[in-house]
Simulated assay, not measured.
Amino acid sequence: MIIAVIDGMGGGIGSQIVTHLRQELPPHFEIYGLGTNATATSAMLKNHANKGATGENAIMVSIKKASVILGPASLVIPNAMMGEVTPRIATAIADAEALKILLPILPDNFELVGLENKPLMLLIKDAIGILKKEFNIK
């Protein structure tokens, strides 16, 4: 199974997701660290993503192979992350067949109603719990 972790900016969220996936999942799961920029990709590779790729085309091609896409919800908002999420990236992620597990981290001018405000670490643990439940991983 391939899990695509996508992040931008400095890659801090993506690198934390990769770290927790490595701790929680069996080693045969393949993790792709896909960055909207090289810094984000590098951060995920340093935290032991199996493969890394950078940029719009790399993200669009790589997510076709993924069973799961993990990252901040801003990935499906065109021009989010200070313009790093292109409209084509947002559309490709939204249209992908993969299960999308998105953390409620959004641009300042977006609010989601009804969500509990949790620290990032708990959001990541919740996301991994959903992944494990969906694919019957113990």
Rank of each mutant, 00 (worst) to 15 (best):
H28G: 00
G12P: 11
F110K: 04
K118N: 12
L123C: 12
V5L: 07
D7M: 12
D126V: 02
L102W: 07
K118Y: 00
H28P: 00
A53Y: 13
A73H: 00
P87K: 04
E97T: 12
S67L: 13
I128T: 02
D7S: 15
G35F: 10
L123A: 02
N47A: 09
K138Y: 05
E116W: 00
N117A: 12
H48Y: 13
P26M: 07
A49N: 09
T19I: 11
I59L: 09
G10H: 06
G35D: 08
S62E: 13
G83A: 03
A53G: 14
I63F: 05
A96T: 05
N109L: 10
G10D: 11
L45A: 01
K132M: 09
V76T: 11
K132H: 06
K132C: 06
A66P: 04
M82D: 08
I77C: 02
T86W: 10
V85W: 03
P72C: 06
I128F: 08
V68M: 08
A98M: 02
N50M: 03
G8T: 05
I130H: 07
I128Q: 00
I31K: 00
I2Q: 13
E111P: 00
A66T: 03
I2W: 15
I31V: 15
I89M: 04
V113G: 01
L102H: 03
V68G: 09
I59Y: 09
F110Q: 05
L103R: 07
G83P: 02
M82Y: 13
L131E: 03
G52E: 10
E111T: 15
T19A: 15
I93D: 08
H28N: 13
G10L: 03
T91I: 03
T54R: 08
A127P: 02
Y32T: 05
H20G: 00
H28D: 15
M81Q: 11
E30Q: 14
I130P: 01
I17M: 10
I69F: 10
D108M: 10
K65V: 01
K64N: 07
G83R: 02
S62M: 14
L131N: 01
L99F: 04
